[in-house]
Design a protein around this nucleic acid. Structure first.
Ligand SMILES: [Mn+2]
Ligand SMILES: [Mn+2]
Ligand SMILES: [Zn+2]
Ligand SMILES: [Zn+2]
Lengths: 137, 137
DNA sequence: CTACAAAATTAGAATAATTTTAATCTATGG
DNA sequence: CCATAGATTAAAATTATTCTAATTTTGTAG
């Protein structure tokens, strides 16, 4: 099985019909460590699928979110970023180069008793500052 | 000393010249537990200061942020909210009623070793789900 | 007090991310 | 082949925020 076939099945298993647009969009997410914006995804893909519409990227991301295939990262106030990695983790964004790094977080260890009063559905841990690369300059 | 005078001095001590606009904006933040949007602040105040401009609210919030008088909460992707409470804490937003609750978080206890590699400047802890009020319906 | 400069405020236009609309295209089961 | 639902598209609309340029206010020196 090719990599595309594997991802195609993965979409099916999550209740998403794997159109070429959806498949390619998901491939971009999986093949890039970055947490891309809708626009970045669109610009990568439009070379290959010239009729692609930005609306399709947004439609697809919302569908993916519903089907728990991606999570939306709002670490920047002005634009959303998308993450295929569904296991709980936090994010650090460098204020200089803008790179977003994954941060491992053990949510069990941080027992926040106050949260018992709520029915928790989503957690987001965002950090900002300077990354090592930018510090060494 | 009246409450206004106290807050006025507080602004001065943080390097902010307390114009009537700035003072009233800061008063609104302090007198409301909610974490208001720029628009909400504007609509409260425009009754009292009819010439107030929304741009002034934004200008003031950015100045306040610089002077470490407020923090910006991006728990909603589409619009910023403002918080006068500068001591580290997290936020829970109810998916039904939209209310944002403060969540006490002991950041020391959650030692995230991976963060040692970075120079940390900001932390944001966002949670979403259902609040007690909405659960009991 | 007056004149001037700097700072703050303002209205409205501009920007940019996202959503909506309405039309067109595609896939598929009968 | 045809009908239908679902997916995609282009373009317009929406909305929060920022920008611009003009005006007002404030502080200060003469
Ligand atoms: Mn991630
Ligand atoms: Mn708060
Ligand atoms: Zn960096
Ligand atoms: Zn609620």
């Amino acid at each position: 099985m090719t990599n595309s076939e594997i991802l195609s099945n993965y979409l099916k298993n999550h209740g998403v019909k794997p159109s070429i647009q959806r498949l390619k969009i998901y491939e971009i997410l999986r093949n890039n460590v970055t947490h891309p914006t809708a626009d970045e995804i669109f610009n990568h893909l439009v070379k290959e699928i010239p009729t692609l519409s930005l609306a399709t990227v947004y439609n697809t991301m919302h569908l993916f979110e519903q089907k728990e295939l991606v999570r939306i990262i709002n670490i920047e106030n002005h634009q959303a970023r998308f993450d295929w990695n569904m296991k709980p983790h936090g994010h650090f964004q460098c204020n200089v180069c803008g790179t977003i790094y994954d941060i491992e977080i053990d949510t069990n260890q941080m027992n926040i008793n106050e949260l018992d009063e709520y029915q928790l559905e989503e957690s987001h841990f965002y950090f900002k500052g300077l990354c090592k690369t930018c510090l060494n300059k």
